[in-house]
Amino acid sequence: MINPVAEPVSLMHYLVVGAILFVCGVVCMTAKRNAIGVLMGIELVLNGANLNFVAFGSPYLQSGGAPSLGLDGHLMALFVIVLAAAEAAMALAIALSFYNAHATVDVDQANELKR
């Protein structure tokens, strides 16, 4: 039996955690009917992608000989964080505007264009 804590962390570990965060975010985005819940799913998706960026740019992880992204991974992660902040501000403003007009945040109620 292999002792899991006796081996150094490889790139694969980070990619698995990033995949789980990404899938949780996608499920949250599709399953939640609350607009704020959908926003939280988007945050999870962006964090999963960010974790992959940082893992690919890390010099400490065994990546199987693949060249590390280096500082580019960190910079991409920073841009993702800033854009996620902008996206959250915008989407929350839209959600609040929708709440002011319709007194609900249920995304299933936002179907006026269908009529």
């Binding site: 694969m12 990619l15 698995v16 199987g64």
Partner: peptide, 8 residues
Amino acid sequence: ATTAGKWT
């Protein structure tokens, strides 16, 4: 993710 080591 688990086959990432085999990319190279």
